[in-house]
């Protein structure tokens, strides 16, 4: 008989895997990995906010992630610095601010590691409602904007010239991404959440011929990573989130290496 806490961890991770596959694929296609990383790391300020106000962690992180996304968009309009420099600045700045704010509010005994890497074995029933309820809403909205998002990912200018309302569609996507980060942060931590999104998508790419197939393969790979990672974690006492992400990263590396040697043989 599996222990209830392990069962909850499994249910949470599988739910997140299914949510991560389409969002992660879109992040990869739109070259937004660093953007998402910055949003996630800014979320530590959301943790501090929830400590300060005594509000729900998920809602605080959601609010801060959306504000961070808006700030990035605003700073992206200036032309003096490239976007990756702006993101680097925000990413480290907000992480530093978050660590200081969290420590100041919760005292030196705060479990910073728990926020950075999550605690998959501390999943509560309420977390599961967030993952499956919130996740279903995110996937439903994503389904509505899937086609315009694909058109923007193929060729941004062409899509805009053809009348795709790029700003609105991207804003919706950013809110969906922020929501996903907020839902996943307690379980995977601010440092691992984006990896959990993009690594399965990266691993799936060599085997995919359509966008939807890439999402399906990514979901399968993410679930496999969850199962193997949690098994390793249960047997060896390794922390759950990092174990899952490590397994996924190894799968992605093998997949990409196989693809590049396969290409070399063909050419």
């Amino acid at each position: 008989m599996i222990e209830p806490f392990l069962l909850r961890a499994l249910a949470a991770a599988i739910g997140l895997a299914l949510l991560a596959a389409p969002l992660g694929s879109l992040v990869v296609w739109s070259r937004m990995a660093y953007f998402g990383e910055t949003m996630a790391q800014a979320s530590l300020l959301g943790v501090a906010l929830s400590l300060a106000l005594g509000q729900s962690l998920t809602l605080s992180v959601l609010a801060v992630a959306i504000i961070a996304a808006l700030l990035i968009l605003l700073l992206g309009e200036q032309r003096l610095l490239p976007l990756d420099s702006v993101l680097g600045l925000m990413h480290h700045g907000s992480l530093a601010a978050g660590v200081i704010a969290t420590a100041a509010l919760a005292g030196p005994s705060v479990d910073l590691l728990g926020y950075l890497f999550g605690d998959i074995f501390a999943v509560t029933e309420a977390d599961l409602y967030w993952i499956y309820g919130g996740g279903a809403v995110v996937l439903g909205v994503l389904w509505l904007v899937w086609q315009p998002l694909l058109r923007l990912a193929v060729h941004h200018e062409l899509a805009v010239a053809e009348g795709v309302p790029a700003r609105r569609v991207k804003a919706v996507f950013m809110v969906l991404l922020a929501t996903t980060i907020a839902i996943a942060i307690k379980i995977l931590g601010i440092l691992l959440v984006i990896a959990f999104l993009i690594v399965p998508a990266a691993a799936a790419r060599p085997f995919a011929t359509t966008p939807e197939r890439m999402v399906a393969i990514a979901a399968g790979i993410a679930v496999a990573g969850v199962l193997v990672g949690l098994e390793i974690s249960a047997r060896s006492d390794a922390p759950g989130g990092p174990a899952i992400v490590l397994v996924l990263a190894i799968l992605a590396l093998v997949s990409l290496l196989a693809a590049s040697t396969g290409l070399r043989r063909r050419s």
């Binding site: 990869v28 296609w29 070259r31 062409l158 966008p211």
Partner: peptide, 12 residues
């Protein structure tokens, strides 16, 4: 458009 470079990350 003048340029139509496709990112290989998107299979289509």
């Amino acid at each position: 458009p003048q340029r139509f470079d496709i990112d290989a990350a998107l299979p289509m």
